[in-house]
């Protein structure tokens, strides 16, 4: 339970950053809050506002968010096996299926996995939405470009990315994705370079098919 609150508070810090980034990208406070309530998966939300902020279209923004949300499906597979839920509880659990709730559930001792999941998921949900509102209201009150918020969003992407680079392949994929995006910027419409970057992961999977 204490872990769940701690994780919720830590995530709140990202939430303030997201709310501010969303408003800096041109979303309304209501749209920023709707994303946190309805999408509720941080990296995807950052991706969506990042693409829209760069002038990207609806489809590119949605595709970027969806690509980043794909790992939640794999978390759900593990959780479904661990928690064995049905009916509406399963739909509610699906909405709360994110990095933090999965980590708390799988890290909890046997018998307490359900507690870890629900406490973690609900705590993060509460703090994330509150923090989004605060960040969005705060950014709405100031001139965001003079404050360097565009650079802050870049730093947010870096902070999301860095802990996920755990091995050589991960580093290669990140560098490859960055290079592909840079190449695509002059050639493709806004938003599309982010999707082109995703090809780096596809190439890595194809190359490493044998040793998986």
């Amino acid at each position: 339970m204490r872990d769940a609150l701690g994780v919720g508070l830590a995530v709140g810090a990202y939430g303030v950053g997201f709310g501010a980034a969303a408003v800096a990208a041109g979303l309304s406070v209501l749209q920023a809050c709707a994303l946190s309530l309805l999408m509720f998966t941080g990296a995807s939300q950052f991706a969506l506002v990042g693409v829209l902020g760069a002038g990207g279209g609806v489809l590119a923004a949605v595709a970027g968010a969806t690509l980043l949300g794909s790992r939640n499906a794999l978390y759900a597979v593990r959780l479904a096996d661990l928690l064995r839920l049905s009916g509406l509880r399963r739909v509610a659990a699906a909405h709360l299926t994110i990095d933090e709730s999965t980590a708390l559930a799988t890290g909890a001792p046997a018998g307490l996995q359900g507690v870890g999941f629900w406490a973690g998921g609900l705590s993060v949900f509460g703090f994330w939405n509150l923090a989004t509102l605060l960040g969005a209201l705060g950014a709405g009150a100031v001139d965001t470009s003079a404050l360097g918020l565009d650079a802050a969003v870049g730093a947010a992407f870096l902070a999301l990315l860095a802990p996920q680079v755990r091995d050589r392949t991960g580093l290669q994929v990140a560098v490859g994705g960055a290079a592909l995006a840079a190449l695509a910027v002059p050639l493709a419409p806004a938003g599309v370079p982010v999707l082109v970057a995703g090809l780096a992961a596809v190439v890595a999977v194809a190359l490493h098919r044998g040793d998986a």
Binding site: A47, V51, G154, L161, V173, A178, L180, P193, A197
Partner: peptide
């Protein structure tokens, strides 16, 4: 690996 590639792409564009 997808999040790594996409986040790196977002970073460059941003």
């Amino acid at each position: 690996l997808l999040p790594l590639a996409v986040l790196a792409g977002l970073l460059v564009v941003q």
